[in-house]
């Protein structure tokens, strides 16, 4: 059966920030390949116009006035935050910068 390579699965998993257990790799190699083969059919479809339909919305977009504002107290939001410290949201130390 056609499969993705192990590296391809790990690359896609990293893009999606989803850990894949070693035991699952084989399963994903097959399943992802099946889905990707499906969507590959799109390459064969001929379409004349190159216009893209991003959203079926046809109405005029009405924007927000700069002066319309509202705030929510952090105490409310905090209830769902996994880790806080004082008025801050806490996460493992960010590296990068």
């Amino acid at each position: 059966m056609d499969k993705l390579t192990k590296e391809e699965v790990l690359h896609v998993a990293h893009l999606a920030r989803i850990k894949v257990e070693d035991s699952e790799i084989e399963k994903y190699q097959i399943e992802l390949k099946q889905l990707l083969d499906d969507v590959d059919q799109i390459k064969d479809i001929v379409v004349e116009s190159q216009e893209l339909l991003v959203t079926p919305v046809e109405h005029e977009t009405i924007l927000r006035n700069d002066s319309d504002t509202r705030e929510v107290e952090f105490n409310m939001i905090k209830k769902n935050v996994p880790a806080t410290n004082g008025n801050f949201v806490e996460v493992p130390v960010m590296v990068n910068e």
Binding site: N85, F88, V93
Partner: peptide, 11 residues
């Protein structure tokens, strides 16, 4: 974000 040893804090 501000950073301490093992944690970072978001505003």
């Amino acid at each position: 974000s501000t950073h301490a040893d093992t944690k970072s804090y978001l505003d």
